[in-house]
Design a protein around this nucleic acid. Structure first.
Length: 420
RNA sequence: GCGGGGGUCGCCUAGCCUGGUAGGGCGUGGGAUUGCUAAUCCCAUGUCCGUAAGGACCCGUGGGUUCAAAUCCCACUCCCCGCGCCA
């Protein structure tokens, strides 16, 4: 959600953003609705004032045993009128809120303008792509040959895009989680394992309406949704709270399973474990002072880089274009890992600054002194490791001539072995 | 799941029976006064509208009764205690 005052005073800024994101949104309707809503607030407030005055007067007269029948008659008509006004005010308020929840975040000035991922900008490359003196396999063949994944039975039991992990791949999955938690703990992040289901209010604070359809699973008959990432559960943690300024930044290392519908991804990455409905993830989530959030953003990205350097996966960093940036984010970096079996770089992490967008939706504020106005803080999130995708990169890049996979040095102590 | 008790403006608490402007304490911040490891006093400390003056709203949430609801009624929700069930 954006600052209503900003929308009112600088509508051209919002129009610019909508154009950059290539979105249809009627700003004129929105501004009209805002005006309507505020006029109704003023009207109802005035009537309430009258009502309060009469009410006080009735109380006073009753105390001194004076006649109140005239006043009570007045109150009756005021109350009726007020009820009518309140109804239309509520309607206007709801319409405004509904529309404002669909409005995406601002775009940072450093973000390249473009309609889709073709306008993304590569800003860095790290590592040497591995070379092989034998015919290499993709992760699908590797996992089949080594008995690491059972897709057929998962399809039977759950459906497409599900999987059974088996044998050493289960250990690799755990090793990545453990390594990621150790890594972030060293950087003073607080480990946190979140609820995997959250209610609608929390979900609405963390994501934008459209995503409910495309990404989020609903639990039937309950006000509960499966989280698409621990980000959703961490963002809503401090909902409706005012945080002491001195405790910022709050840095969390969230660990959870993640659940995604992957609607609209038909045909893409149909096989294997690259694009699946369920995976584990260690996530960085930061609640930051507004003036610090851009530093935090760069810091998060640098930690992601350090992590993949330690594992030894070649990557490139992409700055997403305006059209490819998620609606809640003002600026997003993706880390794309080299995947030898596919002979291409593929997205494995995403690092975003949401500014006050989520905080405003969730009413998360902070203040340094109790006598000052609380202000919205900034929220940032970045994948550290989404285990399935990182495992694909490891399997494909670290495969050996004999059809096995060597385990990256940094992970060996967690598995107690150096090959799969 | 059953029975009982609760949810008040950061925290604690009064008010509820008997409807009529939500009071006090603590903490925190600011100020005043006095000065021996401090005390005392004053102000501020939820949201919205408004440039402001000011006003409205806020007692877990949503309804209802009433001229008027923190207070009465109904539903829901969360927490605590006991019982039951359970990995």
């Amino acid at each position: 959600m954006l600052d209503p005052k900003l929308i009112r005073d600088n509508p051209e800024k919002i129009r610019e953003m909508l154009k950059a994101r290539a979105l249809d949104f009627s700003m004129d309707d929105f501004i009209k609705l805002d005006k309507e809503r505020r006029e109704l607030i003023i009207k109802t407030d005035e009537l309430r004032k009258t009502k309060n005055q009469i009410s006080v007067e009735i109380a006073r007269k009753k105390k001194s045993n004076e006649d109140t029948s005239g006043l009570i008659g007045q109150m009756q008509s005021v109350s009726q009128e007020l009820q009518r006004l309140e109804e239309s005010q509520e309607k206007a308020e709801d319409a405004y809120k509904k529309l404002s929840l669909t409005l995406p975040n601002l775009i940072h000035e450093s973000v390249p303008i473009g309609k889709d991922e073709t306008a993304n900008k590569e800003i860095k490359k790290w590592g040497n792509k591995p070379t092989f003196d034998f015919k290499i396999l993709d992760h699908i063949d590797l996992t089949q040959n080594l008995g690491l994944v059972d897709l057929e039975r998962a399809a039977k039991v759950s459906g497409a895009r599900f999987y059974y992990l088996k044998n050493q791949l289960v250990r690799l999955n755990q090793a990545l989680i453990q390594f990621a938690l150790d890594f972030l703990s060293e950087k003073n992040y607080t480990p946190i394992q979140t609820p995997y289901m959250i209610n609608r209010n929390s979900m609405e604070g963390a994501i934008i309406a459209q995503d409910f359809e495309d990404v989020i699973y609903k639990v039937e008959g309950e006000d509960l949704y499966l989280i698409g990432t621990s980000e959703h559960a961490i963002a809503s943690m401090y909902c409706d709270e005012i945080i002491e300024g001195k405790s910022l930044p709050l840095r969390y290392a969230g660990v959870s399973s993640c659940f995604r519908k992957e609607a609209g991804a038909h045909g893409r990455d149909q096989k294997g474990i690259f694009r699946v409905h369920q995976f584990d993830k260690v996530e960085q989530f930061v609640f930051s002072r507004p003036e610090e959030s851009w530093n935090e953003h760069e810091r998060m990205l640098s930690l992601v880089e350090e992590f993949y350097q330690k594992i030894g996966i070649p990557y490139r960093i992409m700055l997403l274009s305006s059209g490819d940036t998620g609606k809640i984010s003002a600026k997003t970096y993706d880390l794309e890992a080299w995947m030898a079996g596919q002979n291409s770089y593929r997205e494995i992490t995403s690092c975003s600054n949401c500014l006050e967008f989520q905080a405003r939706r969730l009413k998360i504020r902070f203040r340094d002194r109790t006598d000052e106005q609380p202000q919205y803080l900034h929220t940032l999130n970045s994948t550290l490791v989404a285990t399935t995708r990182t495992m694909v990169a490891i399997l494909e890049n670290f495969q050996t001539k004999d059809g096995h996979v060597s385990i990256p040095h940094a992970l060996q102590k967690y598995i107690g072995s150096n090959t799969i």
